[in-house]
Design a protein around this nucleic acid. Structure first.
Lengths: 186, 186
DNA sequence: ATGTTTATTATGTCTATACAAAACAGCCTG
DNA sequence: CAGGCTGTTTTGTATAGACATAATAAACAT
C-alpha cells in the first residue's frame, strides 16, 4: 500500500541519488504510476507537492523535470506578535508610539504601487514582559477604516487587520533593520 | 462548472462576509459538496488548500472551523543569491572572506541541536555589480564534505549546498543583523 | 519560406466510490 | 469511578475513468 507520501519520498530519494539529475526530465505520471503500482492521481499528488516545494518543475505537454535551482520555497509562518510572545510564556504588552495622519514617504508608496492620498500612520512597540520586543510600523488606508476607529492602544494594527481582513491573496514582503535612534531609546 | 478554485473563492468570501465568523464551525464536506453541486473531493481540495494557507483549521471528526488567528502562513521563496542578483540585471561576484576550521560558538550549536565537533566556517561576501550585497556566514559539518573540497572561492556555500543536498525537509530559521564592524569595512 | 491549422501528448482537474484513520461519545466492566 | 472497548462521525486518501487545457510538433496551405 503505497501512499502519496511514499511516492514523494521515493522521488526525492532518486533526485538526491542523482538517478534523476538536476534539470533532467523524469518519466511521466502514467509510467511512474505503473512502476509504483498506484493510480496516476496518487503520483500526481506526490509530484504536485514536490513542484509546490520547488523541487520539480512541471509543464503540460513538456513533462516534469528536476528544478535546476532547488530548495527555493518554504512555508513561512507569519506570527501574530501577541501569540508569539505569549507562546514564550512572557507577558504581552504594547505601547502606541505614534498615531497620525500624513502622506507616506516615497519608498512606502513605491511598495504599495498606488497612491490613496493621506494615510493613517501607526507605530507600535510590542513588549515581552516589559522589555521591547519588536516595533511595528504601519500605514493604513483611511478609506477602509471603520468609524469609530478601533482603539489601537489596546489592539495592535497587525492583529486588528488580521482579524478584520481575515485573508488576502497577494504578495508579502518584509525588511529588517536593527534598532537605531528613536527605536533604541524606546 | 465549478472548479476547486471557485469553491475556495466562495468559502473565502463567506469568511470575509462574516457568514462564517472567526472560530466558527463550517458545514462538513458532504453538505458543501451537495450545496455547490460538486463531488466531495473537490470541496476537500478547496478546504485543504485554505487549511494549508492558515485560513481554516481542520480535524477529523471535529470538522472544519475558521481559524481564530488567520493569515498565518505564506510561501517564502528562498533565493539563490546569485540568481537574485542576476535577476536585477546586475553583475554577480563573490569574495571569500574567511575559510577555517573551528568549533562553532554556543548560539550556533544551540540552533543546530547537536555537536559534531570541529566544523568548517565560511564567510562569503556577495557582490552586486561590485557593491556589497549580503554576507553569508555558514558552518558546515566536515564529515559530509567531499574530498577534495569544492572551491568555495568560485561557488558560494549556499549554492553548492543547494545543488548537492538538493532538498531537505525540516525547519529553516533565519535572523537579520545590520552591517557592523568587520562587515561594514568589507 | 512562412504562417495557420490540426493532431498529439502530458499534466490538471472532476466524479463516484471505497476504505483508512483520528477523535470523540457512550457504554460496559471490574 | 477508572479503564478499556465499541461505535459513529468527519476528514484523509486511494482508485479508475473521463474530460479539459496547455504546449508542442507535424501537416498543410499560402
Amino acid at each position: 500500500m503505497a501512499g502519496w507520501e511514499d511516492i514523494r519520498a521515493e522521488v526525492l530519494a532518486r533526485i538526491r541519488a542523482r538517478i534523476w539529475p538536476l534539470g533532467a526530465l523524469i518519466p511521466g505520471e502514467e509510467a511512474l504510476a505503473l512502476e509504483f503500482g498506484v493510480a496516476r492521481a496518487t503520483v500526481n499528488r506526490a509530484l504536485s507537492e514536490l513542484a509546490r516545494a520547488g523541487v520539480l518543475e512541471r509543464k503540460r505537454k513538456a513533462g516534469t523535470r528536476v528544478a535546476a535551482l532547488p530548495v527555493r520555497k518554504a512555508m513561512l509562518d507569519i506570527p501574530v506578535i501577541r501569540a508569539e510572545i505569549e507562546a514564550r510564556g512572557e507577558v504581552y504588552g504594547l505601547r502606541l508610539l505614534r498615531l497620525e495622519v500624513g502622506r507616506p514617504p516615497v519608498p512606502v508608496l513605491a511598495r504599495l504601487g498606488q497612491d490613496v492620498g493621506e494615510m493613517m500612520h501607526l507605530r507600535t512597540l510590542h513588549l515581552a514582559s516589559g522589555r521591547g520586543f519588536v516595533v511595528e510600523d504601519r500605514w493604513l488606508n483611511r478609506a477602509v477604516l471603520p468609524d469609530p476607529m478601533p482603539d489601537f492602544a489596546a489592539i495592535s494594527a497587525n492583529e486588528w487587520l488580521v482579524a478584520q481582513v481575515s485573508f488576502a491573496m497577494g504578495d508579502i514582503s518584509f525588511a529588517a533593520e536593527s534598532a537605531a535612534g528613536w527605536e533604541a531609546e524606546a
